[in-house]
Write a protein that binds this DNA or RNA. Structure first.
Length: 417
RNA sequence: CGGGGUGUGGUGUAACGGCUAACAUGCUGGUUUUGGGUACCAGUGACUCUGGGUUCGAAUCCCAGCACCCCGACCA
């Protein structure tokens, strides 16, 4: 994409009311625009990042046998009264509205109840199970206090997957597979090293749920980890019993601040019993379905990545999520130089390599460099009078201070998969 | 929801209760410059969040509302 066609602009200063580093950088670089507290537009650059994150998750969820679908954002009151979660006294983050035709609707903060209700139409026999479905949904939550930029919003995108299984064993098998798939996802997103499968409060049916917690100063959670034994425990369940169960002592644990980027939860048969989701087994008996839910916060993930991968100059995207792979900068307005840059840009795009081409005229080299640093695209490639003279380009990784001169052919070859 | 703070051109800031609300940045036009936000000239752009009140006079003081930020609580 040509930078002259990109409608967003960079800015030197972040809005004064934005304290969170992730929001400051993302706004300055033009990835997002703030509509109101806890609500951010995804501008073209931010949209591309979200898309890349989705692609990775989609691949891993499909590999698990997940089927992608999408549910509505508005939800009926009845569905939620069956599990007693419609009341504001019980769920305090509801956005609700009245229908002109009469009756109330809620705006989805979760889809556990509606999906289970919908699934009732499709399950009657053990032959119909298991079912794994997932969606990328915009969730609306009337948070008492939005904060930390993209990390706790009132509107955010979440991948939520649900598993419907015949029994505990079938459920457990999938649950474990999902843990592995999630690990792959976070590895691919570049945060695998710092992401821990964490024991957390489990609710009525199970003792623990599992949270995926990524070390992040801007996070809201405190967890205790032991890297060697690969154990992580949320502060909320850290007690003598937990330590004993996990066979670890308090002294072996390191306290870290984290952001919850994923959560997987076993409902057992509780919710399906409440909602009347049963099936007939081989013997013709009527049995409640086992339900599991598995979430990943997509937009929060962007915030976490921005927090973790950035420096004083700007963002530093991992290649897997970067809006573009290469940022080509043309310096000066010498016709030969511009022609060479155009030629390379054409060659790269023809090979489906994602390139942002800084073709702006009348913009000084310094400004282009600063913008490139702020945008944080993994590879910066400079085409200038100097490089053209040597029939080469200058490549610099965003993560490195050094650059190297590379011939045109080698440059193209290097990025051709 | 409890506590604290802040609302001034697009953005960041300034202005004792008193001249036409200042500066930087951005944007427009021009000259200049071309490997780290080049320099200069000329322009552009604000009912000082809203509504009341005090005062001869309010961006400035008071009250209310709204918005935003921070701390806490909350976060199946």
């Amino acid at each position: 994409m040509r930078q002259t066609q990109l409608f967003t602009k960079t800015r030197k200063e972040a809005p004064a009311d934005e304290m969170a580093k992730n929001a400051q950088l993302l706004i300055r670089a033009g990835y997002v625009h703030k509509e109101m507290a806890g609500a951010y537009d995804l501008l073209p650059l931010g949209f591309r990042v979200v898309d890349n994150i989705k692609k990775i998750i989609r691949e891993e969820m499909n590999a698990l046998g997940g089927q992608e679908f999408i549910m509505t954002g508005i939800q009926s009151k009845d569905v939620w009264t069956s599990t007693d979660r419609w009341s504001d006294d019980i769920v305090d983050i509801w956005f609700k509205s009245e229908l002109h035709a009469g009756g109330q609707v809620g705006f989805g903060w979760s889809h556990e109840e509606p999906i289970t209700e919908m699934i009732k139409n499709h399950i009657s026999s053990f032959r119909d199970l298991p079912i794994y479905v997932y969606q990328f949904q915009t969730k609306l939550r009337n948070e008492l206090r939005a904060k930390s930029g993209l990390m706790r919003g009132r509107e955010f995108v979440m991948k939520d997957m649900y598993s419907y299984s015949t029994d505990a064993e079938q459920h457990e098998k999938f649950y474990q597979k999902t843990i592995d798939a999630y690990k792959k996802v976070f590895d691919r997103l570049g945060v695998g090293e710092d992401t821990f499968v964490t024991f957390a409060a489990g609710g009525a049916f199970t003792e623990f749920s599992h949270e995926f917690q990524t070390i992040c100063e801007a996070g809201e959670d405190i967890i205790y980890i032991n890297r060697e034994k690969n154990i992580a425990i949320n502060e909320e369940v850290l007690n003598e019993k937990t330590l004993k169960d996990l066979n670890i002592s308090r002294e072996e644990l390191e306290q870290v601040k984290t952001a919850e980027v994923g959560n997987i939860f076993n409902f057992g048969t509780e919710k399906c019993e409440k909602m009347g989701l049963y099936f007939k087994n081989e013997k013709g008996e009527t049995i409640p379905v086992h339900l599991g839910s598995y979430g990943i916060g997509i937009t929060r993930m962007i915030g976490v990545i921005a927090e973790k991968f950035s420096d004083e100059k700007g963002l530093v995207w991992p290649e897997s999520v970067a809006p573009f792979q290469i940022h080509v900068l043309v310096l000066g307005e010498d016709e030969i130089v511009i022609a060479q840059a155009e030629k390379l840009y054409g060659q790269l795009t023809k090979r489906n390599i994602e390139v942002l081409f800084d073709d702006r005229k009348g913009v000084s080299p310094g400004e282009k460099f600063s913008d490139a640093d702020l945008l944080g695209i993994p590879y910066r490639v400079v085409v200038s009078a100097k490089t053209v003279q040597q029939e080469s380009v200058e490549i610099k990784k965003r993560t490195s201070a050094d650059s190297e001169l590379v011939s045109y052919d080698e440059f193209i070859a290097r990025f051709t998969v």
